[in-house]
Protein backbone atom coordinates (compact mmCIF):
# COMPACT_ATOMS: atom_id res chain seq x y z
CA UNK A 1 0.00 0.00 0.00
CA UNK A 2 1.42 3.46 -0.91
CA UNK A 3 0.39 4.95 2.45
CA UNK A 4 3.16 4.41 5.00
CA UNK A 5 2.53 4.78 8.74
CA UNK A 6 5.49 6.38 10.46
CA UNK A 7 4.13 5.89 13.95
CA UNK A 8 7.33 4.20 15.15
CA UNK A 9 9.38 7.26 14.25
CA UNK A 10 7.03 9.71 15.99
CA UNK A 11 6.79 7.47 19.05
CA UNK A 12 10.57 7.23 19.26
CA UNK A 13 10.84 11.04 18.98
CA UNK A 14 8.33 11.51 21.77
CA UNK A 15 9.90 8.63 23.77
CA UNK A 16 6.57 6.93 24.37
CA UNK A 17 5.96 3.18 24.52
CA UNK A 18 3.24 1.27 22.65
CA UNK A 19 1.40 0.26 25.81
CA UNK A 20 1.32 3.80 27.16
CA UNK A 21 0.20 5.27 23.82
CA UNK A 22 -2.52 2.65 23.42
CA UNK A 23 -3.81 3.44 26.89
CA UNK A 24 -3.73 7.21 26.32
CA UNK A 25 -5.68 7.08 23.05
CA UNK A 26 -8.03 4.37 24.24
CA UNK A 27 -7.35 1.58 21.74
CA UNK A 28 -6.07 -1.93 22.35
CA UNK A 29 -2.33 -2.67 22.03
CA UNK A 30 -3.30 -5.21 19.34
CA UNK A 31 -4.94 -2.48 17.23
CA UNK A 32 -1.97 -0.17 17.75
CA UNK A 33 0.28 -3.00 16.59
CA UNK A 34 -1.85 -3.37 13.41
CA UNK A 35 -1.33 0.33 12.75
CA UNK A 36 2.42 0.24 13.50
CA UNK A 37 3.02 -2.84 11.34
CA UNK A 38 1.38 -1.27 8.25
CA UNK A 39 -1.43 -3.83 8.30
CA UNK A 40 -4.29 -1.35 8.83
CA UNK A 41 -6.70 -0.83 5.95
CA UNK A 42 -8.18 2.37 7.39
CA UNK A 43 -7.70 4.84 10.24
CA UNK A 44 -10.64 6.59 11.88
CA UNK A 45 -10.41 10.38 12.11
CA UNK A 46 -11.07 10.08 15.85
CA UNK A 47 -8.06 7.74 16.24
CA UNK A 48 -5.90 10.07 14.16
CA UNK A 49 -7.05 13.02 16.25
CA UNK A 50 -6.15 11.19 19.49
CA UNK A 51 -2.76 10.18 18.09
CA UNK A 52 -1.99 13.76 17.06
CA UNK A 53 -3.11 15.10 20.44
CA UNK A 54 -1.08 12.62 22.50
CA UNK A 55 2.01 12.70 20.25
CA UNK A 56 1.70 16.46 19.70
CA UNK A 57 2.13 16.16 15.93
CA UNK A 58 0.31 16.61 12.61
CA UNK A 59 -1.38 13.80 10.60
CA UNK A 60 1.33 14.26 7.99
CA UNK A 61 3.98 13.30 10.55
CA UNK A 62 2.27 9.93 11.03
CA UNK A 63 1.05 9.20 7.50
CA UNK A 64 3.15 9.47 4.36
CA UNK A 65 2.32 8.83 0.71
CA UNK A 66 5.00 6.87 -1.12
CA UNK A 67 4.08 6.10 -4.75
CA UNK A 68 4.43 2.43 -5.70
CA UNK A 69 7.04 1.62 -8.29
CA UNK A 70 5.50 0.40 -11.55
CA UNK A 71 7.12 -2.61 -13.17
Amino acid sequence: MPIVVNLDVVMARRKIGAGELAEKIGITPANLSILKNQKARAVRFSTLEDLCRVLDCQPGDILEYVPEERE
Binding site: I27, K39, A40, R41, V43, R44
Partner: peptide
Protein backbone atom coordinates in the same frame (compact mmCIF):
# COMPACT_ATOMS: atom_id res chain seq x y z
CA UNK B 1 -15.54 -7.78 8.29
CA UNK B 2 -11.88 -8.11 7.28
CA UNK B 3 -11.87 -4.40 6.36
CA UNK B 4 -13.52 -3.52 9.67
CA UNK B 5 -11.12 -5.69 11.68
CA UNK B 6 -8.21 -3.79 10.14
CA UNK B 7 -9.72 -0.36 10.77
CA UNK B 8 -8.03 1.30 13.74
Amino acid sequence: KDELDLTV
